[in-house]
Amino acid sequence: MTSPFEQLANLDKLIHEPARLAILTALSACESADFTALRRLTGLSDGNLSVQLSKLEEAGLIKTKKQFVGKKPNTHVQISAKGLEAVQRHWERLDAIRKNAEAWENDTPTPET
Protein backbone atom coordinates (compact mmCIF):
# COMPACT_ATOMS: atom_id res chain seq x y z
CA MET A 1 0.00 0.00 0.00
CA THR A 2 1.40 3.45 -0.96
CA SER A 3 1.77 5.98 1.85
CA PRO A 4 -0.48 9.05 1.96
CA PHE A 5 2.58 11.18 1.15
CA GLU A 6 3.18 9.28 -2.08
CA GLN A 7 -0.50 9.54 -2.96
CA LEU A 8 -0.42 13.29 -2.33
CA ALA A 9 2.65 13.65 -4.53
CA ASN A 10 0.82 11.81 -7.34
CA LEU A 11 -2.14 14.23 -7.37
CA ASP A 12 -2.76 16.25 -10.52
CA LYS A 13 -0.98 19.52 -9.72
CA LEU A 14 -2.93 21.47 -12.31
CA ILE A 15 -6.14 20.82 -10.35
CA HIS A 16 -4.72 20.57 -6.82
CA GLU A 17 -3.42 24.16 -6.82
CA PRO A 18 -5.81 25.94 -4.34
CA ALA A 19 -6.96 28.78 -6.60
CA ARG A 20 -7.70 26.48 -9.54
CA LEU A 21 -9.37 23.89 -7.29
CA ALA A 22 -11.61 26.68 -5.91
CA ILE A 23 -12.55 27.78 -9.46
CA LEU A 24 -13.32 24.23 -10.62
CA THR A 25 -15.26 23.45 -7.41
CA ALA A 26 -17.43 26.56 -7.90
CA LEU A 27 -18.04 25.79 -11.58
CA SER A 28 -18.90 22.15 -10.84
CA ALA A 29 -21.91 23.37 -8.79
CA CYS A 30 -23.54 25.46 -11.52
CA GLU A 31 -24.13 25.73 -15.26
CA SER A 32 -21.87 28.77 -15.69
CA ALA A 33 -20.57 31.83 -13.83
CA ASP A 34 -19.25 35.17 -14.95
CA PHE A 35 -15.89 36.67 -14.03
CA THR A 36 -17.29 38.87 -11.22
CA ALA A 37 -19.09 35.94 -9.56
CA LEU A 38 -15.97 33.76 -9.76
CA ARG A 39 -13.87 36.55 -8.24
CA ARG A 40 -16.37 36.81 -5.37
CA LEU A 41 -16.65 33.05 -4.88
CA THR A 42 -12.93 32.33 -4.88
CA GLY A 43 -11.64 35.55 -3.31
CA LEU A 44 -8.98 35.84 -6.04
CA SER A 45 -7.75 39.15 -7.48
CA ASP A 46 -8.63 40.03 -11.10
CA GLY A 47 -5.10 39.30 -12.29
CA ASN A 48 -4.74 35.99 -10.48
CA LEU A 49 -8.18 34.81 -11.62
CA SER A 50 -7.35 35.66 -15.26
CA VAL A 51 -4.10 33.71 -15.09
CA GLN A 52 -5.74 30.67 -13.50
CA LEU A 53 -8.63 30.72 -16.01
CA SER A 54 -6.16 30.81 -18.91
CA LYS A 55 -4.34 27.75 -17.53
CA LEU A 56 -7.58 25.85 -17.02
CA GLU A 57 -8.79 26.75 -20.51
CA GLU A 58 -5.48 25.66 -22.07
CA ALA A 59 -5.90 22.30 -20.34
CA GLY A 60 -9.45 21.98 -21.71
CA LEU A 61 -11.02 21.93 -18.24
CA ILE A 62 -13.17 25.03 -18.78
CA LYS A 63 -14.71 26.98 -21.67
CA THR A 64 -14.89 30.77 -21.68
CA LYS A 65 -17.18 33.01 -23.70
CA LYS A 66 -16.48 36.73 -23.93
CA GLN A 67 -19.37 39.10 -24.62
CA PHE A 68 -20.36 42.70 -23.98
CA VAL A 69 -23.08 43.76 -21.54
CA GLY A 70 -23.72 47.34 -22.68
CA LYS A 71 -20.20 48.70 -23.12
CA LYS A 72 -18.67 46.46 -20.47
CA PRO A 73 -16.86 43.23 -21.37
CA ASN A 74 -18.22 40.17 -19.59
CA THR A 75 -16.62 36.74 -19.51
CA HIS A 76 -18.80 33.69 -18.91
CA VAL A 77 -17.05 30.56 -17.75
CA GLN A 78 -18.38 27.00 -17.96
CA ILE A 79 -16.75 23.78 -16.81
CA SER A 80 -16.17 21.23 -19.58
CA ALA A 81 -17.14 17.56 -19.33
CA LYS A 82 -13.45 16.76 -18.94
CA GLY A 83 -13.13 19.40 -16.17
CA LEU A 84 -16.17 18.11 -14.30
CA GLU A 85 -14.91 14.56 -14.39
CA ALA A 86 -11.41 15.68 -13.34
CA VAL A 87 -12.57 17.71 -10.34
CA GLN A 88 -14.96 14.97 -9.16
CA ARG A 89 -12.20 12.37 -9.46
CA HIS A 90 -9.83 14.74 -7.61
CA TRP A 91 -12.20 15.10 -4.64
CA GLU A 92 -12.66 11.32 -4.55
CA ARG A 93 -8.88 10.88 -4.43
CA LEU A 94 -8.53 13.46 -1.67
CA ASP A 95 -11.19 11.67 0.38
CA ALA A 96 -9.39 8.35 -0.16
CA ILE A 97 -6.06 9.91 0.89
CA ARG A 98 -7.66 11.36 4.03
CA LYS A 99 -9.07 7.94 4.98
CA ASN A 100 -5.75 6.27 4.15
CA ALA A 101 -3.89 8.84 6.26
CA GLU A 102 -6.16 8.16 9.24
CA ALA A 103 -5.59 4.38 8.91
CA TRP A 104 -1.85 4.91 8.38
CA GLU A 105 -1.62 7.08 11.51
CA ASN A 106 -3.37 4.41 13.59
CA ASP A 107 -1.11 1.63 12.22
CA THR A 108 2.15 3.51 12.81
CA PRO A 109 3.72 2.44 16.16
CA THR A 110 4.40 5.34 18.53
CA PRO A 111 8.03 5.56 19.72
CA GLU A 112 8.53 4.51 23.34
CA THR A 113 9.80 7.18 25.69
Partner: peptide, 9 residues
Protein backbone atom coordinates in the same frame (compact mmCIF):
# COMPACT_ATOMS: atom_id res chain seq x y z
CA UNK B 1 -23.09 44.26 -11.12
CA UNK B 2 -21.58 43.77 -7.67
CA UNK B 3 -21.79 39.98 -7.20
CA UNK B 4 -21.92 38.80 -10.82
CA UNK B 5 -24.12 36.15 -12.41
CA UNK B 6 -24.24 32.42 -11.77
CA UNK B 7 -26.53 30.32 -13.95
CA UNK B 8 -28.00 27.28 -12.16
CA UNK B 9 -27.89 23.87 -13.83
Amino acid sequence: QVFGRVTPT
